[in-house]
Amino acid sequence: MHDLLFSPFIEFGFMRRALAGGLALALSGAPVGVFLLLRRMALTGDAMAHAILPGAAIGYLVSGLSLGAMTIGGLAAGCIVAVGAGAVARATSLREDASLAAFYLISLALGVTIVSMRGSSLDLLHVLFGNVLALDDATLVLLASISSLTLLALALLYRPLVLETVDPGFLQNVSRAGAPVQLLFLAIVVMNLVAGFNALGTLLAVGLMMLPAACARLWASRLAGMFAVAVGVALASVYIGLIVSWHAGAPSGPMIILAAGCFYIVSVLFGRAGGIIRRMPARKHLEG
């Protein structure tokens, strides 16, 4: 049992790093995911994750697989797409979702092109799916910093962010915080996607945010409960994903997201706050 559950982390440094990095990501990504879910921005998160790619790819083009360059590039690209899509939505008849889709499709194609022209297909895989087993010290520090900063920022923005989500009109009436809070929240999302990008890659980074958040919605009916469930599911997914990938020889990043996926399926079936089985008696009652 001990061998099965703990020895990979005791014996191998890279497994410990992967665990530490993954837990840091889970800790901040899950609450961000809860807000994305409640603000009906689940797909926005996905789109933003793809939008980061060309920036990271240009960073890669300039200085190879360098953490700093790819992170700065990713942050810049994410912000440009977020602001650009918003500007197009305001200036034209296109809605925000349509302009965001256009921006992220262009970004994804551009990013894949840049990486493929310069690097190997292995590099491309790394960019698309990350490599949580290859986290170096600098990346770990980055993940931990982003995680801490995110939790601090969410704590400070909590009140206006909640009110901006549940009743934006009222917030506008009593305060000027609405627009800056929206922008800061987008910045937090981009920051966490860039962090997730380093470990899970551009295609899966959003998985550790949205899947735990979706589980949380199905178990908890209050906000505090949702945060607790989401963080718990995310942390457990990281551990389970790593341990399964180790024993099964499967890729780690996708296994982490698959573990979260299993939690999601269980939640859809059994969730106490809106799962399928929970809802069935109510229907019978109506028939009777």
Binding site: L38, L156, V166, D167, G169, V174, R222
Partner: peptide, 30 residues
């Protein structure tokens, strides 16, 4: 009070917390 106030009723917040936002000018952000 806007017409059919644009409140997201699916948001998990209770009546007390919702009404307490009326204190906003007093409490501000923090």
């Amino acid at each position: 009070l806007p017409q059919a106030a644009e409140v997201d009723r699916s948001f998990p917040i209770d009546v007390f917390d919702m009404v307490s936002t009326g204190h906003w000018r007093k409490t501000g952000l923090f």
